[in-house]
C-alpha cells in the first residue's frame, strides 16, 4: 500500500497536467463546432445544383461529419493520441525508473516480493489513467452539452469517450512489457513517442488508403467510432483481442520482472 501511495504521489502532477491538457485540446476544437455547422449549411445549399446521385452519396457523409458525434469522433482521434502517449510513458517509466534513478537497490531490499512491487506500481499507473479519464469525461460531457444545439445521444458519446481508456490500457500493458524486457532504458520519451506515433501514423494512413488488415495491428483502430455511433456498442471481437493482448503482456511482465537482473548502481 505504501508503494502504491508513493507512486500515486510521484505521478500526481503529471496526471493533473495531462488531464487538463486533454480538456484544453477538446475546448479548442469544440469551440469551432458552431462555425462548422454554419459552413456545412452553406455547402448543402450549393450541393443542390448537383445531380441527385452525387448529392446523395455526398450528403450522407456530410450529415454524419457535421453532427456533434461525427465531429467529436474526428477531434477524439487527437485526444486518443495524447492519451496514448501518456499511457505508454507511464507504462515504460514506472518499472524502469528505479534502475534509471539508482533507487532499485533501495526498493528491492525492502521486505516485499517483486510481484508485489509490480502489482503496486501497475495499480498506481491504472489509477492515474482512471483519474485522467474521469476528469476528461466529465469535462467532455459538459462541453458537448454547451456547444450542441440539438440533443445528442449521451450514451454513445460516453462510449466513444471511454474508448480512450481502453486504448490507453493496451498501451500501458505494452509499456510495462517493454520496460520489463529491455535491460536498461536511458530515456523513456523517445521510446514511447516513437511507438505511439508509429501506431498513429499506421492508423491515419490506413484510414486514408482504406486497408482492412491494419485494424488488427494498431490499437487506435480497435474501437471504430463510426461503428459505435451506428450500433451504440463496441465490436465484440476486438474486445476479446484486447483482453488477450493485455493479459498476455501483463503476465509476461510479471514473469520476466520476477527473474530480471537489475543493476543496482
Amino acid at each position: 500500500m505504501n508503494m502504491f501511495l508513493h507512486e500515486l504521489k510521484a505521478y500526481r502532477k503529471s496526471t493533473i497536467i495531462w488531464a487538463f491538457s486533454l480538456v484544453a485540446i477538446l475546448v479548442l476544437f469544440m469551440s469551432m463546432f458552431p462555425g462548422l455547422t454554419r459552413d456545412a449549411a452553406d455547402f448543402k445549399k450549393l450541393l443542390e445544383g448537383y445531380p441527385e446521385g452525387v448529392r446523395k452519396a455526398f450528403g450522407i457523409s456530410l450529415e454524419s461529419i457535421t453532427s456533434l458525434l461525427g465531429f467529436y469522433s474526428y477531434v477524439f482521434a487527437y485526444i486518443l493520441l495524447c492519451g496514448s502517449i501518456q499511457a505508454m510513458n507511464l507504462g515504460i517509466s514506472i518499472l524502469s525508473k528505479e534502475s534509471r534513478e539508482k533507487t532499485a537497490d533501495f526498493l528491492l531490499t525492502k521486505p516485499v516480493k517483486r510481484n508485489q512491487v509490480v502489482t503496486a506500481k501497475l495499480s498506481a499507473a491504472l489509477t492515474s489513467l482512471i483519474i485522467t479519464n474521469g476528469i476528461y469525461l466529465a469535462a467532455a460531457v459538459i462541453i458537448a452539452m454547451a456547444v450542441s444545439t440539438k440533443p445528442f445521444d449521451i450514451q454513445t458519446f460516453t462510449l466513444i469517450s471511454l474508448t480512450a481508456f481502453w486504448v490507453e490500457c493496451m498501451f500501458l500493458a505494452l509499456g510495462v512489457l517493454v520496460s520489463a524486457v529491455v535491460t536498461r532504458i536511458k530515456s523513456v520519451l523517445p521510446l514511447s513517442l516513437s511507438t505511439v506515433f508509429g501506431f498513429y501514423v499506421l492508423n491515419m494512413f490506413g484510414a486514408v488508403i482504406g486497408e482492412k488488415a491494419i485494424r488488427y495491428l494498431t490499437p487506435f483502430k480497435y474501437y471504430d467510432t463510426a461503428y459505435i455511433i451506428k450500433h451504440s456498442s463496441y465490436e465484440t471481437s476486438y474486445i476479446i483481442i484486447e483482453i488477450i493482448v493485455i493479459a498476455g503482456a501483463i503476465a509476461a511482465s510479471y514473469m520476466i520482472y520476477a527473474k530480471k537482473d537489475i543493476h543496482a548502481v
Binding site: 469551432m32 462548422l36 455547402f43 452525387v54 457535421t66
Partner: peptide, 19 residues
C-alpha cells in the same frame, strides 16, 4: 473527376475533416 471538383468547392473546414 467530378468528386475532385466537388471537394474543391467545399468550405475549408470541411475539407480539413475529410482529410
Amino acid at each position: 473527376q467530378s468528386l475532385q471538383q466537388m471537394i474543391s468547392e467545399m468550405p475549408k473546414s470541411l475539407q480539413a475533416i475529410m482529410g
